[in-house]
Amino acid sequence: MAIIVNLDVMLAKRKMRSKELAEIIDITTANLSILKSGKAKAVRFSTLEAICKALDCQPADILEYIED
């Protein structure tokens, strides 16, 4: 997948655990794990908004495009 999700980097910067973030944005840890591992096919804007709000960052801080 050409879109990379750099959630681990932001979680480390904000010193937050995955489980904590999952609770704040109201998704399961399994779904968050799918997102982090790059297996997700799509992300809803509402989820992206919730993540950016919880981590106080921009979408560009979490999503990166690398050509295959």
Binding site: I27, N31, L32, L35, A40, K41, A42
Partner: peptide, 8 residues
């Protein structure tokens, strides 16, 4: 359905 399941 698979795509829907992998939409976070």
């Amino acid at each position: 359905q698979s795509e829907n399941n992998l939409t976070i």
